[in-house]
Design a protein around this nucleic acid. Structure first.
Lengths: 134, 134
DNA sequence: TTCCAATATTAGAATAGCTCTAAAATTCGT
DNA sequence: ACGAATTTTAGAGCTATTCTAATATTGGAA
């Protein structure tokens, strides 16, 4: 994908080994992994023991730095998404899979709610069935 | 507002004292209360001690019965909404207040995402500032 | 280079939100 | 009024996350 060291530096995050493998995992993943999935998938790649706290710290750091997005579905744990473009989500109600939907596809949703509201941003979550494989 | 006994019966939920005061509290509330807020606001209205489990059980029962909606914001506890019409939400980012937005106002969001997706439903959450008081 | 300060990481405790469990209380039909 | 079914309860348990305080690592300044 991309050089992780540069990726982190670009977002002003010091590239430590833990951060590199964590960011790499999320960037490689198409599946909007949870913190726990990241922890599981990444732990053995490191020479030293990895703490869950480090996973959470790192994810929070990367989200704050704008390198990742935190995605909240209807309930359950937060999920992490390396797609930081403006987008929404589509959740396959059968499989639970999460798809990114480009904001352009949802442009019709003009922020014209009436006089009383000034919209900063909005998020749309679709539920349905997807034919796409992944 | 409405007679709670009939309200519960209409949704095939047996009207017990606990359920009556819990449903009443949510119906009266404009603020999308959390389970804990409901527990706090309701406990002293009952002659006997109220358990949190009862609050959760009752809310789940009412949601399943279609009498209430469960609303998930970006993070934090679930919130409960007696507006069961098709609607979305507006969150004031300054105050945290949650407003219902009628689905008609968001109709432009035609479920035409392309060939790959069949949309069952979608939810929209707006973030911004509201002039409305409540 | 070596010391110090700043930063990062760790294990585990703590917290929040919610569900589960098993016992007690209540309700309902006979 | 009796037994079965349902509801409620207190508290244990679980999941997701943050906090804490100790340890490890890093990165200058001398």
């Amino acid at each position: 994908m991309e050089n992780m060291e540069k990726f982190l530096q670009k977002h002003n995050v010091k590239p430590t080994p833990q951060r590199m493998v964590i960011a790499q995992f999320v960037v490689n993943s198409k599946s909007h992994p949870t913190a726990d999935q990241i922890f599981q998938g990444v732990a053995e790649q490191l020479p030293v023991a990895l703490s869950r706290a480090t996973v959470y710290n790192t994810l929070n750091t990367l989200v704050q730095a704008g390198a990742l997005k935190e995605v909240y579905l209807e309930s359950g744990p937060a999920r992490y998404d390396a797609n930081i473009n403006d987008h929404h989500h589509f959740i396959d109600v059968k499989t639970g899979k999460v798809f990114d939907i480009d904001a352009d596809k949802v442009k019709a949703l003009a922020p014209e709610l009436g006089a009383g509201f000034k919209v900063h941003h909005y998020s749309v979550t679709f539920f349905g069935e997807s034919k796409a494989a992944d």
